[in-house]
Write a protein that binds this DNA or RNA. Sequence first.
DNA 1: TTAATCTTGATAAATTTTGTCGGATATGTT
DNA 2: AACATATCCGACAAAATTTATCAAGATTAA
Lengths: 159, 159
Amino acid sequence: MRLSTTARYSLRALSDLSSSPNNEPVSISGIASRQNIPVTYLEQIFGKLRRGGILESVRGAQGGYMLARPANDITISEILQALGEPVIFGSCQTEKGCENAVTCPTFNLWRKVKGSVDEILRTTTLEDIADEKISLLETQALDPERVEAKRKAEESKGE
Amino acid sequence: MRLSTTARYSLRALSDLSSSPNNEPVSISGIASRQNIPVTYLEQIFGKLRRGGILESVRGAQGGYMLARPANDITISEILQALGEPVIFGSCQTEKGCENAVTCPTFNLWRKVKGSVDEILRTTTLEDIADEKISLLETQALDPERVEAKRKAEESKGE
DNA sequence: TTAATCTTGATAAATTTTGTCGGATATGTT
DNA sequence: AACATATCCGACAAAATTTATCAAGATTAA
């Protein structure tokens, strides 16, 4: 269960893009060199993002890319969707689905996990990550080590 | 962002294993044929699970595998860990980590997502999935389509 | 002893991801 | 018009990962 580098490149590139002055197209080569991403690879990615309605482009000299909408109106979920990187945990969750979902013991588990992840991705916008608006408290509350420590504390209390 | 078939095979196989009468070792070939998993592949997987403390084995004729602990004491998180399938979303979350986590705009996002997923995997046991104990209500509340529908309903209400 | 079964390591096949290349098209600037 | 800067597109290549197979060995019940 991991995130592709395509997705990571994309978020970094979009973050870079959205932190530059608006209304002016930004060239791929600039972003690529600042973010240390292969130019030709980023071209492909931006193509997808454009076709997916995340970016708009201006061709020709002084051209480049810009956000199709304000950063606070673009969710991470949309970005991943435009990249064709669906969040899938069970085979139940592929396009064609899985005929034996009813009897599959893991169906509900993956449904729950996917729902939880989707919830976060759908409520986080590009602006949030560009401005690092995600509350540190919020992330700490979910920090595995802290949760584990808390669990153990309660466990030993109950004994 | 997807789950490997190794992980899916494993959960199905373990689910099969834990639903058979205790104390008796179950052969790989039996599980493989019931669950339609390549025998030799399942051998590899069970090897990892044994070394990871999830399974115990009995060699020789009438031998096979059995759970090293009660099913309600084995979490999904542990299983994935034994398989060497860490839940990783940012490069920040690899073993070696990522030196620029402090300035990385996506660090907090992936930390939050990972925390949320880990929380579920850590609190769900093998028994839960074998018995399908995960509440249907719980999964429906997180169903993407329902959440989306709800969101839209509230949106149009507010206009 | 024999048959069943796990154990291990190497390797092969398949698939996916990541990255490259060549050329086409568009457009501002000189 | 000529040129420089860019996006655009499809095919391809390289690398990595996942999935699967194979062969030979070790263990043990019957």
